[in-house]
Design a protein around this nucleic acid. Structure first.
Length: 399
DNA sequence: AGTGCCGGGAT
DNA sequence: ATCCCGGCACT
């Protein structure tokens, strides 16, 4: 299925229609991994992707029969019709058909994650350029190719977790319909309705990978340990766990505007807006600041997911993120962000695993982490964290 | 020697 | 509570 969303996959798409009940059946013959995905969609559209199916390319498409298409080459016309069919199906229900291992994604996601969805073709998700479709003449092949390629590039960053920033009604209808996934990370407990979103949540917030790091392969399986599937009842009884401040602008900016606007003529998708990826680290940074005065240092397990909350407001603008008091904000270097991400998980390990010293002092050996003194130098002592200034255990760069 | 920070003192 | 520093452990 991984290739279905790609051009290679589209080459083998075939479809046929049944006139009487208005169902549109599309068959996608993938090239390799051939587990089929079937989705019965709300509007009576059914998708079938089966790598083993050998089916002739029957390209009758009564739903768009009234459309006059300018003459193009047969291949182009074929692709156009395919695209038109896909576009029509996406208009009514905007499916998110995931790769077979994640086929537990149910129509709820599709209904609620509407037009803004786009997923990585390379990771096996369908990509739908949904918001820009119309029954009018379908976009040219090159246009679609371009948009598909773009979605392939960008899609990974805009997954189903967008639902977190959508309307509450939409979320409700999603959560009531079936199970969900709950983050097991200590102090988080966020519930998401899609596995992909949960994985990404864990990967980004807890495992500390930046969005654009592209999901380094080594971490791909790691998220599985940190979430669990919960039933819908569990989800409903569970308190709405605070979602960390990850309603980043790009995830939400694509949501309502595009899907709710009347489908205009083909335009370049708006989904390619770049993501702001720097905020979380700085948020963690701020929250580790001055902890010496706030609580005992031993309890500082800098869990990146815990400190901030995501308001479930539909707009989900970047400005919706919790505003950091200006007095505490400061620029954070890349190295510091790295330290923040990497020092957090190791801290508890070093604490618990080394009862080496006889007396109760938890004094650790020289960590490799830079401290304020090293980072800023003695001459810029005013930029040290409070603890360092007081010759206490550094809170800005905890071991 | 340089650094991190505990323990304790000063305010 | 806040701020500072002597002095020790560690590299």
């Amino acid at each position: 299925m991984a290739a279905v969303g790609s051009r290679a996959g589209l080459d083998t798409i075939s479809m046929c229609t049944e006139g009487q009940d208005g169902l549109v059946y599309m068959q996608c013959c993938g090239q390799g991994e051939g587990v089929g995905v079937q989705k019965k969609l709300n509007a009576g559209t059914e998708w079938s992707a089966d790598g083993n199916a050998q089916q002739t390319n029957l390209l009758s498409f009564p739903r768009s029969s009234g459309v006059d298409l300018p003459y193009r080459s047969p291949e182009s016309v074929e692709m156009d019709e395919i695209m038109a069919a896909m576009v029509l199906t996406s208009l009514s229900c905007s499916p998110v058909v995931q790769s077979p291992p994640q086929r537990d994604l149910l129509p709820g996601d599709m209904e609620c994650c509407g037009g803004e969805l786009s997923d990585s073709g390379s990771s096996g998700y369908w990509s739908w350029d949904h918001g820009n479709v119309s029954p009018a003449p379908s976009p040219s092949v090159t246009e679609m190719d371009r948009s598909l390629g773009q979605l392939t590039d960008e899609g990974l960053h805009m997954e189903l977790d967008q639902a977190a920033c959508e309307e509450p009604e939409a979320r409700r209808c999603k959560s009531m319909s079936r199970g969900a996934y709950r983050c097991l990370w200590p102090g988080c407990g966020k519930v998401l309705t899609s596995r992909v979103g949960m994985k990404r949540h864990i990967r980004i917030l807890h495992l500390g990978f930046l969005l654009n790091s592209g999901g380094s392969e080594r971490s791909h399986r790691e998220e599985d340990f940190y979430y669990t599937e919960v039933s819908s009842e569990d989800e409903e009884t569970a308190p709405p766990s605070p979602a960390p401040s990850f309603c980043s602008g790009a995830w939400t900016s694509c949501s309502s505007t595009q899907s709710q606007s009347t489908p205009g003529p083909q335009d370049a998708p708006v989904q390619s807006s770049p993501l702001s990826q720097s905020a979380p680290s700085s948020v963690w940074q701020i929250h580790t600041e001055h902890l010496y005065q706030a609580c005992a240092p031993i309890q500082v397990t800098v869990s990146p997911g815990s400190p901030t909350f995501c308001s479930w407001t539909p707009s989900g603008d970047v400005q919706q993120k919790p505003q950091i008091p200006a007095s505490r904000s400061r620029s954070v270097s890349v190295g510091e962000q790295w330290l923040q991400r990497n020092s957090a998980p190791t801290r508890s390990q070093t604490m618990s695993a080394s009862p080496s010293r006889g007396h109760c002092s938890f004094r650790k050996g020289r960590g490799e982490a830079k401290k304020c003194r090293k980072v800023y130098g003695v001459e810029r002592r005013d930029q040290w964290c409070t603890a360092c200034r007081w010759k206490k255990a550094c809170q800005r760069f905890p071991d």
